[in-house]
Simulated scan of single mutants.
Amino acid sequence: MSYTVEQLPDLEEIKRLKSRYCRATDAGDEVLLRQLFTDNVTVEYRGGAYTAIAHGKDEMIDFLMNAHHSEMITMHHAHLPDIEFTGSDSAQGIWYCEDFHIALDRKEITMGCLIYKDQYVRQNGTWLIARTEYDRVWEAFEPLRPGIQVTAHQLARTGRKPDERKNIDHLLHWKDRATA
């Protein structure tokens, strides 16, 4: 696919948007997260053991901030973007993503990779995520090794503490891991 000269700045802005999403999620930056989505964003994340569904920016932020909290260590790397413009103020993108999560409270590691499919719109001159979904390519769990030492932990400082968290069970649908 070729892009016009006029689309190149938009292409780069959409790439920066996805980068900010990954960084804000891993850093627990709610202020930045609120700047990335349309008010009516829709979300469907289909993992091996779960499906998460959210409607609207507030549900999306609640999901992200409560799933990636002070007892979690997370890493999301989105790369290999395949962006297509569908109009002057709309686009869609497919991204490959590697993720790694350590749940200190459950003493469990989740790792895997997934493929995101996003829809973007430009509102008031700014590109935003209007829809995001992913399907897992693979997902694996393992227990956290006894004696592992964590020497840096961003979400311990910036993530929601236990007394600040909201229940997000209504946004999650769990599968039996043995049959996933």
Rank of each mutant, 00 (worst) to 15 (best):
S90E: 10
G47M: 13
S90N: 00
L36F: 12
M65V: 01
G93C: 09
A67F: 06
F37I: 10
V43I: 14
R20W: 14
W95S: 09
Q7K: 03
R46P: 00
D10A: 11
I94C: 10
A49V: 11
Y21C: 05
A49N: 12
Q7F: 04
L11A: 04
D29F: 11
V31I: 11
G28Q: 00
D82P: 00
S88G: 00
Q92W: 05
A52Q: 00
K18E: 11
G56E: 10
G28L: 03
A49R: 13
T74E: 06
E12Q: 12
A91Y: 01
K15G: 04
D26V: 09
E71F: 01
M65H: 01
V31N: 10
Q7D: 03
F63Q: 02
Y45W: 13
L32T: 15
S19M: 13
M60R: 04
Q35T: 15
S90K: 05
F100W: 15
R23C: 12
L8A: 03
N66A: 02
H79F: 15
G28A: 05
L33I: 06
A67T: 08
S19L: 15
D62H: 05
I94G: 04
M65Y: 03
M72C: 13
N66W: 03
V43H: 09
R16L: 15
P81I: 07
G47A: 12
P9K: 05
K15I: 14
L8K: 03
E71L: 03
C22M: 13
E98Y: 14
G48D: 06
E71S: 09
E59F: 07
Q35M: 07
L36H: 08
P81L: 10
D39Q: 14
K18F: 08
D99P: 05
T86E: 04
G56M: 10
E12M: 12
A54E: 06
D58S: 12
M60K: 07
T25M: 12
Q35V: 01
H55I: 03
G47D: 12
L36K: 06
D62V: 02
V43A: 10
G87T: 02
S19E: 15
A24G: 09
I14L: 13
M60V: 01
D26L: 02
Y50P: 01
H79W: 09
A54H: 09
A67E: 06
A67Q: 03
H77G: 02
A24L: 10
L80Y: 07
D58G: 00
K18Q: 14
F85R: 00
E84Q: 11
H77D: 08
A24E: 07
H77L: 13
F100I: 01
E13R: 13
M75I: 01
Y96K: 07
A67D: 08
D62C: 04
Y96V: 04
E44K: 15
V31W: 04
A78W: 04
T38F: 11
I83H: 02
G56Q: 07
